[in-house]
Design a binder for these strands. Structure first.
Length: 1115
RNA sequence: GCCCGGGUGGCGGAAUUGGUAGACGCAGCAGACUCAAAAUCUGCCAUUCGCAAGGAUGUGCUGGUUCGAUUCCAGUCCCGGGCACCA
């Protein structure tokens, strides 16, 4: 009887299916265990060998836990919304729903062939309306919640509304709130919602009429077609994940993720504590106006004392006021669209602080303020205030004009023309003084810097401002103007990609302006440099070259004198970022340890009113809308500029069918093209869709209760299954998916839907399986000029050739980016063993002699006088991916060797967490092992040979006391249990091999030994185990068989062969009783011949005896 | 530049707490069985010197701690992955 794996595997897979063997009940009596794989995006390419790595690991662990008596939830589903299906639709016209359905079917059949124990009755698909109904519902919950800063949790926004109605907000009273228009109230609320709408920048490609992802933009142009891409402000949805920054950080302490994974999340959140410090510019602060982008924190400036509530005197008040003034009304948005696009010819700023007021729109260059007034400006009180405001602003040299919302909405172009007219009149008149460049440099301006090291403030030698910073234009002196402009042009010419990729050289430019160190009055120069980012902190830093490496290099490069505040800790050759030095040259901080000085400095800064303590995060709110088709539609209708949620009873809001998948007008998504869908009696529907992570942020909850029509998950059910106990997936989701999912879980917890706030207890990261790519390079050669160009010509993997090759000069010359050619089926292009490249390719290459070395091919006539080019091959290890043509499809291997072999081989490759190159070389060995196992039960000719005789007390050489067969078994039980628990699946596989080898040596065919072994093997090789179990005459399911019990008594040994080392090198060995004592051991060791030889008659210095380990003789 | 991993035979890897480095498998070599092949089985297999016994060297490199280091410490080189130059 042969091991007929094909028959066996098919039989059992069918049986499992028919008996619903993997169906999991919500049986609350049993202890639960939840094992989850990151669900795949069902790409058209199907599964490749990299996919199953994690799935096999999770499958082994699930089956193991089931044998151990747990109720194991091990579901699978599909992350089936996404761009590739949409792009495919664009190209072929096939509806994404259709391709997705097809792809999922392929995936499922491939997965089933590997024998995974998924409970398919719990399958979820994110693109299924029955699923995304709940995604939309959770979105509405996010929309209808706010983050309470006092209790640090999400609460229904209705509570906030109630509070505003009865007690008012921080900048308005209850009465005022109640008098506000609906639109204004909604604007204010929008600033607090967890899912909110706001304006944000997107990559806009005019030529394609669409918004592009970062990946799709290369060097400032679109990847497809090379069209220019610009930043465009568009209305977007966001998730207020920043509100959860601290909780996301704290939560990391409670989960079992790898340290590097936690570190990545911490870095992404990027919490830092420090201070913002204001540096005034020379020749000294002169409080005329806040013309700069960053206003100085000057003392309260309300001359009259009137209307203080509308005045903003410091940054905090200002921010609050800005928030509470509400987002732009429709009119404001309309006008802003015009102004920001330079329709009147001058730069305007929106919601800009001027002289303690917030101007709707301000043109600083011309000193013009434009206000857009809503209906409430009709009240007498408001009129009075407006007049006061106008007067104050005019007093400092601004002209103020007002338009009503109606004026703007009815004809925005008219309004623009009016502004233009007024502005042209101002030019000639008095407003010269408002032009910063003609003024004495930067008078009255200040630069706010964020620093984590306020203790080093006496060591500040210069300030560096981000080139994009608004203040740059205002502080640059005439003399430096040219240099700054030149530098700005340089920065602009550098794409983000470039800035990241290159090892940056030190660049920068001096503005000509100086600031004053508030503590010692030192005049410090202000520079700009690309190493300071506009988007982080305040966009300006105080540079302390003796303590910061980049500041140091900058100072050295531009010859800026360096102040030493840490004495001998600074050697003048490099910066020392220590916090343990005692400060010198530091005024009131002298003599303090830097660590301790941080707090002291911040206190002083706050006391002097020149800054404040500040916690900064790198993380931004998460963009939540996409101008795409294949995603969840937002259950939102815009009514008069107000986002109105659909009632839950109307969910799901199904994705309508579209005729074409191209973008809608004005960069909107394809949905905008469907007029009768977009326009409803209630208003206009939101036309963007949700991003991929919407559905994947909560899918682990739906598996628990996938058919529930009343809730996304029943509370009792989620209380039972609770967090995922083991989550397996790749590191590429380290920040994105895992952070979003953690945030959603926290929100759902806050709102009382679930009883736990971390989704995943333990995370296991599977390593990448890399593929080998073979490249053929074609090198153009010029005589006497060595090589001219190296062009990657094609990638060959597994030697198949294809025809649709287009060799054009464009692809040919794209140096560095590999041009991959698919290879025609069945044609061996490269036979690396025989080192000959096949004819087909040679014809295309126009040569007929190509000799291949394993990694390098040289054309035979190499660089002869007559050759114009030569070709060579090389191998590279890359991430396995369809686009690289280096994938291996598991189907083939499963067919050839069987699922059990495939499963064990993938595990045998190496540790799950480590990335490793894919190679099928070793699969034979694993297959041989399974056949050898089979032969313990069956002989090819004789048939069954297993026996029911009891394990013999037969003893092996060496005098072990326990029966060898039982010892093998229990040794194996122990090791398998151990290895499985610590996810060391590769060593578990070798343990099985050792066990089978040893039992074969012992000629052991005894059921009492073999049967427990079969149970042990079940998680790893379920098919063969099931078959053997059945063949042994067992009824019932092996899947729920009890896990073999370890009996330590078979492992106890009385003696051990101890290695004897002499001075740490093993020279001999000795068999000793395990309970031997030191004196006795010493005596025996000294009698040993080898030891005596090495001692040469001398007495040993010392004999180290470590029981159960070794003996070391020191001479 | 920064952060996180990782460097062990021809190859994938093992050594779980500082205690016999190279388990297990692949490839290779020699042999048995066979007309032959496949399958299977047996033996050898880090490098080096040696007929052998037995030495020497050896876990990227240089040092250190220790009776003893792949393991701990310091420095350094290389490879892989990530990144938002994060003040």
């Amino acid at each position: 009887m042969e091991y007929n794996f094909r028959e066996i595997e098919q039989k059992w897979q069918q049986q499992w299916k028919e008996t619903d063997a993997y169906k999991v009940d919500n049986n609350f009596d049993k202890p639960k265990y939840y094992v989850l794989d990151m669900f795949p995006y069902p790409s058209g390419a199907g599964l490749h060998v990299g996919h199953p790595l994690g799935y096999i690991a999770s499958d082994i662990f699930s089956r193991y836990k089931r044998l151990k008596g747990f109720n194991v939830l091990h579901p699978m589903g599909f992350d089936s919304f996404g761009l590739p299906a949409e792009q495919y639709a664009l190209e072929t016209g096939q509806h994404p729903a259709e391709t997705t359905k097809k792809n999922i079917a392929t995936f499922k059949s491939q997965l089933d062939k590997i024998g995974f124990c998924y409970d398919w009755s719990r399958e979820v698909q994110t693109s299924d309306p029955n699923y995304y109904k709940w995604t939309q519902k959770i979105f509405l919950d996010l929309f209808n919640s706010y983050f309470c800063n006092t209790c640090k949790m999400a609460k229904p926004i209705s509570e906030l509304v109630k509070k505003y109605e009865t007690r008012g907000g921080s900048t308005f009273t209850a009465d005022e709130w109640n008098s506000y228009s609906k639109a204004r109230q909604e604007d204010i609320l929008m600033k607090r919602r967890l899912a909110y709408s706001s304006f944000g920048e997107v990559n806009w490609c005019e030529a394609l009429g669409t918004v592009l992802a970062n990946d799709e933009v290369v060097n400032g142009v679109s990847e497809r077609g090379g069209h220019p891409v610009v930043k465009k402000k568009m209305r977007q949805w966001y998730l207020r994940i920043t509100a959860y920054a601290d909780r996301l950080l704290e939560g990391l302490e409670t989960v079992d993720f790898s340290e590097s994974m936690k570190e990545m999340q911490r870095n992404w959140i990027g919490r830092s504590e420090g201070a913002e410090v204001e540096f005034h510019l020379t020749p000294g602060p002169s409080p005329t106006s806040w013309r700069g982008g960053e206003q100085p924190m000057k003392p309260a400036a309300s001359s009259s004392g009137l209307y203080p509530k509308y005045k903003v005197n410091d940054r905090v008040q200002f921010e609050n006021a800005r928030i509470n003034r509400g987002a732009s009304t429709e009119a404001e948005a309309l006008l802003w669209e015009q102004l920001r696009n330079n329709k009147v010819g001058y730069k305007f700023r929106r919601q800009h602080p001027v002289e303690g007021f917030i101007a709707d729109f301000a043109c600083l260059q011309k000193g013009l303020i434009v206000e857009a007034d809503g209906g409430y400006h009709e009240t007498p009180e408001q009129k009075e205030y407006d007049e006061y405001r106008t007067k104050e602003l005019e007093a400092v040299g601004f002209k103020v004009i007002r338009f009503t919302n109606e004026e703007i909405i009815s004809n925005v172009y008219n309004v623009c023309n009016k502004i233009k007219e007024i502005i042209s009149n101002i030019t000639a008149t008095k407003h010269q003084s408002a032009s910063p460049l003609s003024n004495s440099v930067g008078e009255g301006l200040g630069v706010r810097c964020y620093t984590t090291r306020p203790d080093t403030i006496f060591g500040v030698d210069f300030l560096v401002v981000a080139p994009e910073h608004e203040i740059v234009q205002q502080i640059t002196t005439e003399a430096q103007k040219e240099e700054i402009e030149k530098y700005l042009a340089y920065v602009k010419s550098r794409s983000d990609r470039e800035r990241q990729a290159e090892v940056k050289s030190i660049t920068g430019a001096f503005t000509g302006a100086y600031a004053i160190n508030p503590f010692n009055g030192a005049e410090i120069p202000i520079w700009i440099s690309e190493y300071v980012l506009a988007g982080y902190g305040t966009g300006a830093i105080m540079a302390v070259p003796c303590g910061d490496e980049r500041d140091f290099k900058f100072a050295r490069h531009f010859n800026i004198p360096i102040t030493n505040i840490i004495g001998e800790h600074y050697n003048g050759k490099e910066a020392n970022p220590t916090k343990d030095a005692v400060l010198q040259n530091s005024g009131f901080l002298n003599g303090l340890l830097m660590k301790d000085a941080i707090g002291v400095a911040i206190n002083k800064i706050e006391e002097l009113g020149i800054g404040k303590r500040k916690v900064n995060y790198k993380m931004r709110d998460a963009g939540f809308s996409r101008q795409r088709y294949w995603g969840e539609p937002f259950p939102i209708i815009w009514k008069d500029g107000v986002a109105t949620p659909l009632d839950e009873s109307r969910l799901p809001l199904e994705l309508p069918h579209v005729e074409k998948y191209g973008p809608g007008p004005e960069g909107e998504g394809p949905l905008a093209n469907i007029e009768d869908w977009v326009n409803t009696p209630e208003g206009r529907r939101e036309t963007s869709t949700m991003p991929g992570y919407a559905g994947s942020s909560w899918y682990f909850l739906r598996y628990m209760d996938p058919h529930n029509n009343q809730a996304f998950v029943d509370r009792k059910v989620s209380d039972y299954w609770n967090s995922v106990d083991l989550y397996i997936g790749g590191t590429e989701h380290a920040v994105g998916h895992l952070l979003y999912s953690r945030m959603w879980t926290k929100v759902l917890y806050d709102l009382g839907y679930i009883g736990f706030e971390e989704p995943f207890k333990k995370l296991l990261n599977q390593g990448m399986i890399t593929g080998k790519s073979y490249f053929i390079h074609l090198v153009n050669c010029q005589r006497n000029n060595s090589t001219e160009n190296v062009h990657i010509f094609c990638s060959i993997n597994k030697g198949i050739f294809i025809d649709n090759i287009e060799i054009n000069s464009e692809t040919f010359h794209s140096k560095g980016s590999s041009v991959h050619f698919r290879l025609k089926n069945g044609h061996n292009v490269v036979d690396f063993k025989n080192r000959i490249i096949e004819k087909d390719l040679l014809e295309i290459l126009g040569t007929d002699n190509l000799v291949v070395d394993e990694y390098k091919v040289l054309w035979e006539n190499d660089l002869t006088e007559t050759s114009e080019r030569f070709i060579y091959c090389e191998m590279d290890i890359e991430k396995m991916s369809k686009s690289k043509f280096n994938t291996d499809n598991p189907d083939e291997l499963v067919y050839q060797y069987g699922a059990d072999t495939f499963r064990m081989y993938e595990m045998f490759l190496g540790p799950v967490e480590q990335s490793k190159p894919w190679d099928t070389k070793g699969i034979e060995g694993v297959h041989r092992f399974l056949r050898k196992l089979w032969r313990l039960f069956f002989d090819e000719i004789k048939g069954p040979i297993w026996t029911s005789s009891a394990p013999s007390p037969l003893e092996r050489a060496g005098g072990e006391a326990s029966p060898a067969e039982l010892k093998v078994l229990h040794k194996t039980i122990k090791k398998i249990e151990d290895d499985t628990e610590r996810f060391s699946f590769n060593t578990a596989v070798s343990t099985f091999m050792i066990a089978v080898n040893e039992l074969a040596d012992l000629k052991c065919n005894k059921r009492e030994i073999l049967e427990p072994l079969v149970v042990l093997l079940t998680p790893y090789a379920p098919h063969i185990s099931a078959e053997l179990w059945k063949q042994l005459g067992n009824e019932g399911s092996l899947l729920d068989a009890p896990f073999p019990k370890l009996e330590e008594k078979y492992l106890v040994e009385s003696n051990k062969e101890y290695p004897i080392s002499i001075n740490g090198k093993v020279r001999s060995s000795i068999n000793l009783s395990l309970d031997a004592k030191q004196p006795e051991v010493e005596k025996l060791v000294l009698q040993n011949e080898v030891v005596q030889k090495w001692l040469e008659g001398n007495a040993p210095k010392k004999i180290i005896y470590v029981p159960n380990k070794m003996i070391n003789v020191v001479i």
